[in-house]
C-alpha cells in the first residue's frame, strides 16, 4: 500500500472541482423559482445529454483527427434492438457486453 503525494493532490483537487458542479444547482434553486421556459429547457436535457453520451462513446479523437469507433457502432445496432424490445437496462448492458466480447474474440 503506497501513496504518492502528487497523486494525492491530484485526487483531492479533482474531487473538489467535481463536487462543485454537482451540488451548486441544488444550492441555487432552493432560493429562486425558475421561469417556465427554463423548466421546459431542463426537461429536454435528459434526452439530449443521453444521446450526446452515446455518440461520445462512438467517437475517437486522435491528434485533432476525428474517427468513428466502428466496432462500437457495429455492436451498438443490435444492442439498440434489444434495448427497444426488452426495455430493460440490465438486459441491454449484459447482452451488449457479451456481444462485444464475442466480437473481440472472433476479430
Amino acid at each position: 500500500m503506497s501513496i504518492n503525494s502528487t497523486v494525492l493532490a491530484v485526487i483531492a483537487l479533482s474531487a473538489l472541482v467535481t463536487v462543485i458542479p454537482r451540488i451548486l444547482p441544488f444550492l441555487l434553486v432552493r432560493n429562486l423559482r425558475l421561469p417556465d421556459a427554463v423548466m421546459k429547457w431542463l426537461s429536454f436535457v435528459p434526452v439530449c445529454i443521453l444521446t450526446a453520451l452515446v455518440i461520445e462513446n462512438l467517437l475517437m479523437q486522435e491528434e485533432s483527427r476525428l474517427a468513428i469507433d466502428w466496432p462500437i457502432l457495429l455492436i451498438l445496432l443490435p444492442t439498440a434492438i434489444i434495448a427497444y424490445k426488452y426495455r430493460s437496462l440490465s438486459m441491454t448492458v449484459v447482452s451488449g457486453v457479451l456481444l462485444m466480447a464475442i466480437y473481440r474474440y472472433i476479430v
Binding site: V47, L58, L76, A83, S88, T92, V97, Y105
Partner: peptide, 21 residues
C-alpha cells in the same frame, strides 16, 4: 476490452435513452 467491458458504458447510456423515449 477483450472482455467487452468497455462496451458497458455506451450500452448503459443507450438503454437509459430508450427508457426516456
Amino acid at each position: 476490452e477483450a472482455w467487452g467491458l468497455d462496451f458497458a458504458l455506451p450500452a448503459m447510456f443507450l438503454g437509459l435513452l430508450f427508457l426516456q423515449l
